[in-house]
Simulated scan of single mutants.
Amino acid sequence: MESKQRSAIHTFDIDNYLNHIIPRARFYLLPKPISHWFGYRAPPKGEPKAPVPATSVLLVWLFSFLGAFIGIAIIENVFRNLPLLGGHSVPLVIASFGAAAILEYNAIESPLSQPRNLIFGHFLSACIGVGITKLFLHLPEARFEELRWLAGALAVGAASTVMGITKTVHPPAGATALLAATTPEVTELGWWLLPLVLLASALMLASAMLVNNLYKRFPLYWWTPVDLSKPTKADIVKAKDVEKAGSGSSIHSASDAGLKQNALPLPAGNSSDAASTRRDQSRLDTTSKEARNIRTDPELKIQIELDRIVVPDWMELSQWEAEVLEGFQIRLRASTGN
Rank of each mutant, 00 (worst) to 15 (best):
L84F: 11
L84K: 06
L85F: 15
L85D: 00
G86I: 06
G87H: 10
G87R: 06
H88M: 04
S89F: 03
S89L: 15
V90H: 05
P91Q: 08
L92W: 02
V93C: 04
I94A: 08
A95F: 08
A95V: 05
A95T: 11
S96E: 01
S96K: 02
G98Y: 01
A99V: 08
A99T: 09
A100Q: 01
A101M: 08
A101K: 11
A101E: 07
A101Y: 14
I102Q: 04
I102L: 06
I102K: 04
L103M: 02
L103P: 10
Y105W: 01
Y105M: 12
A107I: 11
A107F: 14
I108M: 07
I108L: 09
I108E: 04
S110R: 12
P111F: 02
P111Y: 09
S113Y: 01
Q114A: 00
Q114G: 00
Q114F: 02
P115S: 03
P115W: 07
R116V: 04
N117L: 11
L118F: 03
L118H: 04
I119D: 02
G121T: 02
G121W: 00
G121R: 04
H122R: 08
H122E: 08
F123R: 08
A126H: 05
C127Q: 09
C127Y: 01
V130C: 11
V130T: 03
G131V: 09
I132G: 01
T133H: 00
T133I: 03
K134Q: 14
K134P: 12
L135W: 06
F136M: 04
F136Q: 01
L137V: 13
H138V: 14
H138T: 13
E141I: 13
A142M: 09
R143P: 07
R143L: 13
R143D: 05
F144Y: 13
L147E: 11
W149F: 06
L150F: 05
L150A: 10
A151Q: 06
A153W: 04
A153C: 04
L154K: 10
L154N: 12
V156A: 06
V156H: 04
G157S: 13
A158R: 11
A158M: 08
V162I: 15
V162G: 12
G164H: 12
I165T: 13
T166E: 09
V169G: 05
H170T: 08
H170F: 00
P171G: 07
P172C: 00
A173E: 10
A173W: 03
G174D: 03
G174F: 00
T176N: 14
T176C: 06
A177I: 02
L178T: 07
L178G: 14
A180H: 04
A180I: 06
A180C: 09
A181K: 09
A181W: 08
T183Y: 07
T183R: 15
P184Q: 15
P184F: 13
E185G: 15
V186R: 05
V186D: 04
V186E: 05
E188D: 12
W192C: 01
W192V: 01
W192R: 02
L193W: 03
L196Y: 02
V197N: 02
